[in-house]
Write a protein that binds this DNA or RNA. Structure first.
Lengths: 168, 168
DNA sequence: ATCAGTCAAGAACGATCGTTCCTCAACGGC
DNA sequence: GCCGTTGAGGAACGATCGTTCTTGACTGAT
């Protein structure tokens, strides 16, 4: 079977660039023209490779979860206290996950599934590392998301950690 | 000067309906057709009254802040402990504020200004009511936003409040 | 009854959206 | 060489976007 013309773009690079774009503004705020211009992928190849704008979004979201959230879960497993856990989550690049949760999950069940399981993984990591009940762990994850959403003035997270875990 | 034909719609009702729509999905997910169909205002009147879709959005956001966030600030002033404050914020209707913060504030400076000052008002109310430092107060506000963003399983907020304020 | 002024009703605008189509260039196998 | 296949390059599609225009209905004052 013939082989055809080789690709002129790096699929991994393209998906990373998509993570950056989708993590920076709302789904409907990123046009296919924006993607074509910033990804180095031509329209036709984009649809041939990812099927649709939503298909590319889902691939980008999963890459974000694998590349950014996964390592965070691993790092959390070694967190000795609440302050460390909060700082790890607040410093991590969670832009696309946060935006997906607020912007797309209500309108896209598949996105909602990915977001829910990613947050559950963070909850479990926090609960296991700190030895706290599940409900408190998910509240700590929620607090970290809230801090990130506000721009995280750094002192706020530290103050919360101090209050949550007086031993540090 | 002649008086002209009277309006067939209630401007307050229309703005409230807009708050509901914009609070339910992202700005770009609400079309002008959606607004016309759900607000009981005709296209022409909408533009005559609010200038543009963005103009209506800003009016709706300010109404949301005045009608929903303002009373919350007042209620927070009487909150005796962290648990009460968290529950007040988690139970309040903060849909549009949350969506505005994540979805529109990064792209619209005027929205960003409104969001920032609303969150600052919440911070101040929490700090004054609970007698905590400003950084911890803003962290508590952030935690409430995070809980709301996650769907707030009720136990999570309670667990966090218990840990934050052991006297309750 | 007439007139100026405001709103309702809906068609229509250009722009942009996501998507598809068509043509040509670049490859491996015969 | 040629053929089958795949990607690049753009033009072009219908649909929908936010916005405006046109027409006529309804108002209070003259």
């Amino acid at each position: 079977m013939p082989m055809g013309r080789p690709r002129a773009f790096d699929e991994d690079e393209a998906v990373r660039a998509a993570v950056g774009l989708f993590g920076g503004r709302a789904y409907d705020g990123v046009s296919v023209d924006d993607l074509v211009n910033h990804l180095g992928v031509h329209r036709n190849s984009l649809y041939k490779t990812f099927g649709s704008k939503r298909g590319l979004y889902l691939v980008a979201l999963r890459r974000h979860l694998a590349d950014d959230v996964g390592p965070l879960v691993d790092a959390l497993a070694a967190a000795p206290d609440v302050a460390t856990a909060l700082r790890l989550m607040a410093d991590a690049d969670l832009g696309l996950l946060l935006l997906a949760a607020v912007d797309r999950a209500p309108a896209d069940d598949e996105v909602a599934t990915e977001v829910t399981s990613a947050l559950a993984a963070l909850d479990q990591a926090v609960a296991a590392a700190l030895g706290v009940p599940a409900d408190l762990a998910s509240a700590i994850t929620a607090a970290a998301l809230g801090l990130r959403l506000r721009g995280d003035p750094e002192e706020a997270g530290a103050a919360l950690a101090r209050r949550l875990d007086p031993t540090t």
